[in-house]
Nucleic acid binder design. Sequence first.
DNA 1: GGACGCATGTAATAGGTTACATGATTAC
DNA 2: GTAATCATGTAACCTATTACATGCGTCC
Lengths: 198, 198
Amino acid sequence: MIDVSILGYALLGLLARGAMTGYDLAQRMRVPVRYFWQAGHSQIYPELARLESRGMVSFEHVPQRSRPDKKVYSLTESGRDALTSWLSSPLQDSPTRDELVLRVYSMWLMAPTEALRLMRDQEQRHRDRLQEYEAYEPRLRNAPFGTPEFAVYATLRRGLGYEREYADWCAWLVRELERGISAMETISVNERPDHVPA
Amino acid sequence: MIDVSILGYALLGLLARGAMTGYDLAQRMRVPVRYFWQAGHSQIYPELARLESRGMVSFEHVPQRSRPDKKVYSLTESGRDALTSWLSSPLQDSPTRDELVLRVYSMWLMAPTEALRLMRDQEQRHRDRLQEYEAYEPRLRNAPFGTPEFAVYATLRRGLGYEREYADWCAWLVRELERGISAMETISVNERPDHVPA
DNA sequence: GGACGCATGTAATAGGTTACATGATTAC
DNA sequence: GTAATCATGTAACCTATTACATGCGTCC
């Protein structure tokens, strides 16, 4: 009864907004769209089957000409109950893993110019994603409280804040690296044998 | 030669700062400490063995009385080379998964008071962690550029920014929920059969 | 002719968590 | 006595990624 994975709840949460196929679900959960949970179709199809066997979703077989037949899934009452009870269940914190931060931890082994290149690059990646999110904002900012649209807006706010903060952190480190590099260059100039201090 | 996992690089990065045992590594990678990468000892011991078989680390067997014998691992030259070349290698973005944000996506199904409880709770969790990180800050803020300590400071800055942003997002949603709840209460008061508008 | 979208699945592998297993010393 | 620290491992399980597999229609 209670053994639904987080991915399972993610699917139930999507189906709560409307019936759709496994293919549609995979579209909404693919990496570039991303509402803080992703999955590929190879994970989604078996999970849908599991949910169906537990009676949390049901499907209707829809034959199509000129397209493969499809199964349109919808949330059952027991699926909706499981979803809502999960929402207020105790939330344990899960580990954060971030490869860039892990690299920064060993940054002292890198040539500073290489570190600078890496961080500038990453800052840009986050600025780009921020801009992408900002484009969605106007459509969602006036969503009325309590609606599914407002919930999307709330997750978007998280995305905006996350990317902005991340980019700002990169920018801080870029500045530090630039300062450090120019300080080292000054030293090497002073250390040149032909250098005569003023 | 190139098939080292991210966990492997995490271990190499720790060993670059000094020789230590698998137990010590597990201490530094356990959840409450957490420099944006975690692992338990059951993952670390086999990974150390793999790194050793690839010549990236070597160990010295240290017998002890009154304590179990230990293996003190240190980074080899080829391990250091692998680590530094990984640092500037192309970084592909990995999926972000956040159960709270996933729940917020389905928040419209919850009783608003339940949602409020959840979000207040989570805000506190992040404020607590923020405070914990802030306690480390004074010791690290003056670490000289280019040192291992400065790299720790840089990762700490990320932690500070991340937790602050997260807590602020929670706080925003808490305010929205409070506003929404009080608006609904006003309506129900007006709708009371015995209510006489002024 | 080839790539892309629709549509569904399975299999193999990698990565991560939880549990099992042992055993001495020290601190409360 | 009982829990915690030191110290090392293995096994089972769950989750997630990548690759394998099929097939028609449309657009370039």
